[in-house]
């Protein structure tokens, strides 16, 4: 699937025009991971968010990998690593690839900030959608506690 077509299926970019999606595609860096590959670790400095194009990742919280708690599995169309992009703090969780051949796309803070400065409408739409995504994740987490 062409990257722009893929980005259309990602809620984070819902409401963007074809031209805006094209600009986002230009700053998205593809990477492919196999099962059990650590994409980033809790506590590391984070400078990018990631989009799952295909496959699956698992988010774990805990300094010690042997006792880390699994928080959620994220499949296609989902984003992760967005908190470090928003607040500039360290990674709040470890994210590990849980399926061979998982395709992700990274967007760096610097490239994203520059894009938003040049087209503030992109920044508004993406930030609104990011808030919606965080709300969805919180609802999911709450439901798993019931």
């Amino acid at each position: 699937m062409e990257l722009v077509e893929l980005l259309k299926t990602v809620e984070l970019f819902e409401g963007l025009t074809q031209a805006q999606l094209q600009r986002l595609a230009e700053i998205s860096e593809p990477a492919r991971y196999d099962k059990d590959t650590v994409i980033f670790e809790q506590g590391q400095q984070g400078d990018r968010l990631y989009i799952v194009g295909s496959g699956e990742v698992v988010v774990r919280v805990g300094e010690d990998p042997r006792s880390a708690r699994t928080q959620v599995y994220l499949g296609r169309g989902q984003i992760f690593g967005e908190m470090a992009l928003l607040d500039g703090g360290p990674r709040s969780a470890t994210t590990v690839c849980s399926r061979n051949g998982t395709q992700v796309y990274g967007v760096s803070r610097e490239a994203f900030t520059n894009l938003c400065k040049s087209d503030t409408a992109i920044g508004y739409v993406v930030m609104r959608n990011m808030a919606h995504d965080l709300s969805f994740k919180l609802r999911h987490h709450n439901l798993t506690l019931v």
Binding site: T9, V10, E11, E56, T70, Q71, V72, Y73, L74, G75, R76, G77, Q78, F136, K137, H140, L143, T144, V146
Partner: peptide, 14 residues
């Protein structure tokens, strides 16, 4: 996806 009756964290996917 929320798993009933267990400690599994479930998943979010399109």
């Amino acid at each position: 996806y929320v798993v009933s009756g267990g400690r599994h964290p479930g998943a979010i996917m399109n």
